[in-house]
Nucleic acid binder design. Structure first.
Length: 303
DNA sequence: GTTGAGCGTT
């Protein structure tokens, strides 16, 4: 093979430019790049397969496909093309990851007027984004509001926004914070190996039947048992066939029949957060400090 | 029938 010119273009349909080869018939990438800055290779459409083929590139030297470059038009490869695709992939996976770890959590709404109803809460918070749960905590006997409630949003961005400001609701300033329970659950951290297939479902309402719970939890895996204490005690136990399913749900707040229930391990006797919490009703300085900090922390991810 | 920092009927 001898020195010649090969036809190179940025696109198959564009007018090609002739590029000189070396004496041995190869073409230097640097020569291509001299005319097409940023080029990182060449490709061409195979007359046989009609597919695009890459030109062999070894240490900056482009080698003719067969014995000859022929009369084909070679198309310039740019790293941008692939890079852009990579970026899109990264962005997509980043969003997925974001969605995965930045789940929303219930927010406690402190300082509500006594008169504020769940509808009022929903109306107010809907101005920030999609609301998927609201509660006003009331005295069971009188039905009077306790002056606080909970709200949960569909999107994490909404949650961040809502937590970042005070809220004027029915004439009073209210605060939305992460509930204290969150803090301890995160502290529980990379969990102890208590591979239970049974989970504790807290904050159940009386209208949740065993069948409701079974139907709901089926989506996560095979449910082998549902236990609801009688008389009503606002909690239940759900047992899965697979312990990994059970474990994966621990720490979650799930919404069943419009109510946020809390999933935790079914049989933690010692060093569990409920124990800790009931033993120290918030008077310890160190705990108070942790509460304090928790108010300014966004929830960290936990698997 | 009241109240105003807090924490959700385990």
């Amino acid at each position: 093979m001898s020195e010649c010119y090969i036809r190179v273009a940025e696109d198959e349909n564009e007018e090609p430019m002739e590029i000189p080869s070396e004496e041995d018939g190869t073409v230097l990438l640097s020569t291509v790049a001299a005319q097409f800055p940023g080029a990182c290779g060449l490709r061409y459409r195979s007359p046989v397969s009609q597919c695009m083929r890459g030109v062999r590139l070894v240490e900056g030297v482009l080698h003719a496909p067969d014995s000859d470059w022929g009369n084909l038009v070679y198309v310039v490869n740019y790293p941008k093309d692939n890079k852009r695709k990579m970026d899109e992939m990264d962005a997509a996976s980043a969003v997925k990851i974001k969605r995965g770890i930045q789940k929303t959590s219930d927010l406690i709404v402190l300082g509500l007027p006594w008169k504020t109803s769940e509808q009022d809460l929903k109306d107010y918070f809907s101005t920030f984004g999609e609301v998927i749960m609201v509660q006003v905590k009331r005295d069971v006997k009188t039905g009077n509001s306790k002056g606080f409630g909970f709200v949960r949003f569909a999107d994490y961005e909404t949650q961040i926004k809502v937590m970042s400001q005070r809220h004027m609701i029915d004439g009073r300033w209210c605060d939305c914070k992460l509930p204290n329970s969150k803090y301890f659950l995160e502290q529980a951290g990379p969990d102890e190996p208590m591979r239970s297939r049974k989970v504790f479902v807290g904050r159940c309402t009386e209208d949740m039947t065993a069948d409701d719970l079974r139907q709901f939890f089926m989506q996560y895996g095979e449910v082998t048992d549902v236990f609801i204490p009688k008389p009503f005690r606002a909690f239940a136990f759900v047992t899965f066939a697979d312990d990994q399913v059970a474990q994966s749900l621990c720490g979650e707040d799930l919404i069943i029949k419009g109510t946020s229930v809390h999933i935790s391990n079914a049989e933690p006797k010692h060093n569990n957060i409920h124990h800790l919490f009931s033993n120290f009703p918030g008077r310890s300085p160190s705990l108070a400090a942790m509460f304090e900090r928790s108010q300014y922390q966004y929830p960290s991810s936990h698997v």
